[in-house]
């Protein structure tokens, strides 16, 4: 993968997104594209605006200005609330949330939750067969269908959340820190699962994460966000191997490893904050 502006028809095109909360610019002129079947990482610390960007893309927040287009169709303009429009938007982009325990209704068994979604989107199809298929696709047995979310482990719950998102058959899947709440070994399983699913379905991934290890594993390209703006972009390998922006270097240095010096990282951070200050207020006050 070479140039990010690349392909003829990107499945997701985000251009010029801006969102301010009061005086804080949470998202500041963010643009990127995601080609069909590719995986794009959005990296940054908490408060960098990456989650706000994700929420604008799925439609949970409205951008002040800017566009989000899926397969060439703009989805920021339309404020119509019709059923067909709602379903169409849902089939464009689905989202997997950070904490699977909070993103599933505690009262609803797994199978029922999946059937609910299937009935909404594909009322004519055989729900039961598709539920079994989806559970199988995310590596859960059919027995899981009867379980309530609290009877499942964190990794299993996240598999359910992924299955529910896939049930809609979206063009793009936004994963907002989707493995951050899981144990490291479970993280690896979920990341492998996601890689397999992408291979099978050709769905596009937008990985929102602070974890550079995750980015290295599962993304083709990466954009680095700092204080609401994109400071660096490029193929993942290149960015991680030879970061150009001081903030990217700082992120890479912040990962603990042998010979790691937290004091130096803190000093670099202060230097970065004083040299370049594109935002009127400190990132700590931002909603992430």
């Amino acid at each position: 993968m070479h140039e990010m502006t690349g392909g003829a028809d990107p499945v997701l095109r985000v251009s010029g997104l801006r969102k301010t909360y009061g005086v804080v610019r949470a998202v500041d002129d963010v643009s990127f594209t995601l080609d069909k079947g590719r995986s794009l990482g959005v990296v940054g610390e908490s408060g960098s605006g990456k989650t706000t960007t994700a929420r604008i893309i799925v439609g949970l927040e409205h951008a002040d200005t800017g566009q989000v287009a899926v397969a060439g169709r703009d989805r920021t303009e339309s404020r119509r609330h019709g059923r067909a429009e709602r379903l169409r938007r849902a089939r464009e982009v689905q989202m997997v949330f950070q904490d699977p325990f909070l993103s599933l209704d505690p009262r609803i068994p797994v199978g029922t939750a999946l059937r609910e979604t299937l009935r909404l989107h594909f009322p004519r199809r055989d729900g039961a067969a598709r539920v079994a298929e989806l559970l199988d696709q995310v590596g859960l047995g059919e027995r899981a269908a009867a379980a309530l979310p609290r009877e499942l482990s964190g990794g299993q719950r996240q598999r359910v959340a992924i299955a529910r998102a896939l049930a809609v058959e979206p063009a793009v899947l936004v994963l907002d820190e989707a493995v951050a709440a899981l144990d490291v070994s479970v993280q690896a399983q979920i990341l492998n699962l996601l890689a397999d699913i992408r291979e099978q379905t050709g769905i596009g991934y937008l990985f929102i994460t602070h974890d550079l290890g995750v980015v290295r594993c599962v993304t083709d390209d990466v954009v680095v966000m700092w204080r609401g703006a994109i400071v660096e972009r490029g193929p993942t390998e290149r960015v991680l191997a030879a970061p150009e922006h001081p903030y990217t270097r700082l992120l890479l240095d912040s990962v603990p490893r042998p010979g790691w010096d937290p004091g130096r990282v803190a000093a670099d951070r202060r230097a970065l904050a004083s040299t370049a200050a594109p935002s009127p207020s400190s990132p700590d006050h931002r909603k992430s």
């Binding site: 439609g59 949970l60 938007r89 849902a90 689905q94 989202m95 909070l102 993103s103 599933l104 529910r164």
Partner: peptide
């Protein structure tokens, strides 16, 4: 709570989210 946001992202209407998920909870 995110589970209600999840239902919105899934394309459910506000009414059906309230009746089927919020009120029972």
């Amino acid at each position: 709570r995110p589970y209600l946001a999840a239902y919105r992202v899934q394309g459910f209407s506000g009414l059906s989210i309230c009746v089927r998920h919020l009120i029972p909870n």
